[in-house]
Amino acid sequence: MKLHRLLLAPSLGTILIFMALPIAITTLYSVLTPAQYGGVIWEPSSEAYIRLLFERDIFDDTLTFNTDYLQILGRSVLQAGVATLLCLFIGLPTAWFIATRPAGQKSLWLMLVTVPYWVNLLVRTIALLLILRDEGPINRALHAIGLTDGPLPLAYNNFAIGLGLVSSFLPFMILPLYAAIERFDFSLLEAAYDLHANRRQAFFEVVLPILRPGLIAGGLLVFIPGIGSYLAPDILGGGKTLMLGNLIGMQFQGSRNWPFGAALSTILMAVTLIALFIIARRAAREDA
């Protein structure tokens, strides 16, 4: 074996032990039978997957269509999607601003983007809750200057969850976009203007296609963790709505149905992988 292949061994080993193996175990557990007090019995069962779409009548075992879990999936996709768009709208101008600073200033601005992320995610999420809630500084200030009578319902709802997702994942959008804009050759923009492109055309016909890889990377880095996020709905949503992450957590805790939790995880992973695969193939085709 050539020496340079050995250089890959640590990362391959890590992927095998910490990714492939857990995924294999999760997938395996999803087709087993739940044990009474959590854990699994080694008897194959497809019940966990049937349960995603159908409700089994406890009297006569007939199956009826059940949208409970599809709704939770839909809510997760929607929340993550909205958060991704918001991150894009905030992240693109920010990244543009940083990438166009003089060389000496860039690293300072980049550092400022990452500063909030030196604090643990849980702490940041709780801090956001304290800011948003009825007795928090925003509501107190609005009340003090006479703009509101009672507190605005900022916390414990979908708005708070969305805000939490955006604030959690914004740098994952800014950094890849920054990398893309950094490499952007601004003489192309001048060339576009020389060829009578207006600003709008220059942006959509020249800038955006070149930024595409950064946009896709940033979008995936926000959307994928967003869809499975656990903390934001748990804390900022006041535990009033479930997203996929909370539904999965619940199955391993109070509901004691590990196979169903594992099935939900497997499906989340499958959906993510399929989306990634499609995007990667389209990107490859367009590059070709």
Partner: peptide, 14 residues
């Protein structure tokens, strides 16, 4: 009973 509790809670949180 746990399955019913899980069902009630899932619906309540939906």
């Amino acid at each position: 009973a746990t399955a019913l509790i899980d069902k009630v809670w899932t619906k309540l949180m939906n």
